[in-house]
Every structure is written in structure tokens, then in C-alpha cells.
Design a binder for these strands. Structure first.
Length: 212
DNA sequence: GCAAAGATCGGCT
DNA sequence: GCCGATCTTTGCA
């Protein structure tokens, strides 16, 4: 309530202009902030997935530049929002230098500020149901295609603040993809009850055996 | 021009 | 555990 934004450091361009896997891991623990009608809605990122370019068959950027995915090839630090399954929006942040495709999908948040509004947006009273999935959090934060391409380094309505990285971050395979299944490009906070539960996660192997 | 799959969620069996 | 809702993008004719 009294934490002053002047003391909080925002994630800058250089944070995003790196290898997508580093950004995906680095975003765990950051505070995602969305301003709606002057109110701060926010949550700590507890789950992410990395999507790369031409060599990642699960990525939207795999076929090359199209109208839908062009943001992924642009300047790092922009929001890439897409519509999926006729119902849902998903939020990503672009990575890698310009021309090189990459994005990190935000899969789950631990709610922080504006919980009442987020619950209302979601139609639930369970805190663990507010943002425990990629399409759930966009609904909670009222994110849609109008925010596609937003520069989150400069934006006043959607941005990221530096947080504390949790001590235990697990690395597993991505959820919901049919290609590139063996790649362990999903990161999540160990033991968090705010991560997505869309699929029965395989035993969260901390070992790297079998990593492709 | 048409068909099929898709980085999901929620409800029902 | 399975299925339906609903629409954008892509691939192929």
C-alpha cells in the first residue's frame, strides 16, 4: 500500500535483449503490472515458457515473419498478444535482438495488487484461480489484442518491475505443444500453488538427463 | 476457397 | 478423463 514506485526498478531493454531462455528464467519473480482505469493490478510471475524462432517448431515464429507474429521479430521488450482457440488471449514479451525472433509466454501469476478487481474480471473468489494459466491471467488483467506491440519498457499501462527471484525454480517441458515436446523450456516456482495445472505435469525432473 | 489445427478453459461423465 | 466453444492462421488445391 505504501511501497513507492520510485524505489522499484523497472525491467529495461537490455533485460529483454538476451537469449530467450535467460529471459524466461529471469522473469520468474518479477512483478507484472497492468494499470486499468488508474488502478494497479499486479502479480508476481511464477511460470513462463520460452519460444524461439526458426529452429523451434512449437513457436509461432517457426514459419517466418507473418502479420500475426511480426512483433516477435521486432525490438525486444514489447508485448506479443495473440488470440487462440476462439476464446483466449495469451501474453508474451519479446526477446533477442531485433530481427531475431523470440518471446516468453507468461503462464501464471501470484496475485499481488488489485485482487478484488482481478477476481471480478475472472468471476472467481479463489485466489489460486485468478491467474493460474496463460488465458486466465490475461482475463484477470484485461489484456487483449489492443495491447499487442506495446513497448513494456516505456508503457504506462503494462510493464514489469524487478522482484526477488525465488530460491527454487524448476525447469520442465512446455505445456500444450505437440512439436518440440522434449525441450525443457518451461520455468516455474517450486511448490507454488499459483502455477497452471492444465495438464498433469510429469514428475518435475530437476535432473537434466534427457534434456534436448 | 476450404479444411484443419491450435502456446486453453471449464463443465460434464 | 474427455469434449465443446469459437475464430485466426496456415497449407494446399
Amino acid at each position: 500500500m505504501s511501497s513507492r514506485s520510485s524505489t522499484v526498478q523497472r525491467l529495461g531493454r537490455s533485460f529483454f535483449a538476451r537469449h530467450t531462455l535467460y529471459v524466461a528464467r529471469g522473469l520468474i519473480g518479477a512483478n507484472l503490472v497492468r494499470i486499468v482505469d488508474g488502478e494497479r493490478l499486479s502479480g508476481v510471475v511464477v511460470e513462463t515458457e520460452a519460444y524461439r524462432g526458426r529452429r523451434d517448431p512449437a513457436s509461432h515464429a517457426y514459419p517466418g515473419v507473418t502479420k500475426r507474429n511480426e512483433v516477435m521479430f521486432g525490438e525486444p521488450g514489447h508485448a506479443y498478444v495473440y488470440f487462440i482457440y476462439g476464446f483466449h488471449y495469451c501474453l508474451n514479451f519479446t526477446t533477442e535482438p531485433s530481427r531475431s525472433a523470440g518471446a516468453v509466454l507468461i503462464r501464471a501469476l501470484e496475485p499481488r495488487e488489485g485482487l478484488g478487481s482481478m477476481m471480478k474480471n475472472r468471476g472467481t473468489r479463489e485466489t489460486t484461480e485468478v491467474a493460474s494459466g496463460p488465458a486466465k491471467l490475461t482475463q484477470a488483467l484485461r489484456i487483449d489484442l489492443s495491447l499487442n506491440g506495446t513497448d513494456v519498457v516505456k508503457s504506462k499501462e503494462l510493464f514489469l518491475e524487478k522482484g526477488t527471484r525465488p530460491s527454487r525454480v524448476l525447469r520442465t517441458t512446455r505445456v500444450g505443444v505437440t512439436k518440440g515436446k522434449s525441450l525443457k523450456w518451461r520455468f516455474l516456482v517450486e511448490g507454488s500453488s499459483f502455477v497452471s495445472k492444465g495438464r498433469p505435469a510429469l514428475p518435475e525432473s530437476i535432473t537434466t538427463s534427457g534434456a534436448a
